[in-house]
């Protein structure tokens, strides 16, 4: 089960993911990101503080946006990942494809730098 909250801060969309993302709940994450893109946000931060587990399907959601974000010049930064979750990203090699930062400030800074 996953709970997703969205919060907007000065043109940046912050998506907070709470709980576990598996095959069925990955659809909700996909919807949230798609909505954010649809609303025209160029900076998207994903708050993973409360993300306990992510399955391959959940990783697939992040993965599927990489190219779209590159084309649309949208910057997505993940932050606050638990060690176990980071590990999952690293094993799959997704850590190199995504922007991952320790905390919100760093993530925001990176997003601002990249979008210049």
């Amino acid at each position: 089960m996953v709970h997703i909250k969205r919060l907007q801060e000065s043109g940046t969309d912050i998506i907070a993911v709470i709980g576990e993302i598996d095959a069925s709940s990955s659809i909700e994450l996909d919807l949230a990101i798609a909505k954010s893109v649809g609303e025209g946000f160029k900076r998207i931060l994903v708050d993973c503080h409360a993300l306990e587990y992510i399955s391959s399907a959940g990783l697939g959601v992040f993965m599927s946006y990489i190219e779209e974000f590159r084309d649309k010049k949208i910057q997505m930064v993940l932050f606050g990942l638990k060690e176990k979750v980071v590990n999952t990203f690293e094993i799959l090699g997704l850590a190199e494809l995504l922007n991952i930062r320790e905390n919100k400030n760093e993530a925001l800074k990176l997003a601002n730098e990249l979008s210049v």
């Binding site: 993965m63 690293e90 799959l92 090699g93 997704l94 190199e96 494809l97």
Partner: peptide
Amino acid sequence: KDKGAALGMV
């Protein structure tokens, strides 16, 4: 633990 992204990611 080597570097390597899964097939289909890029």
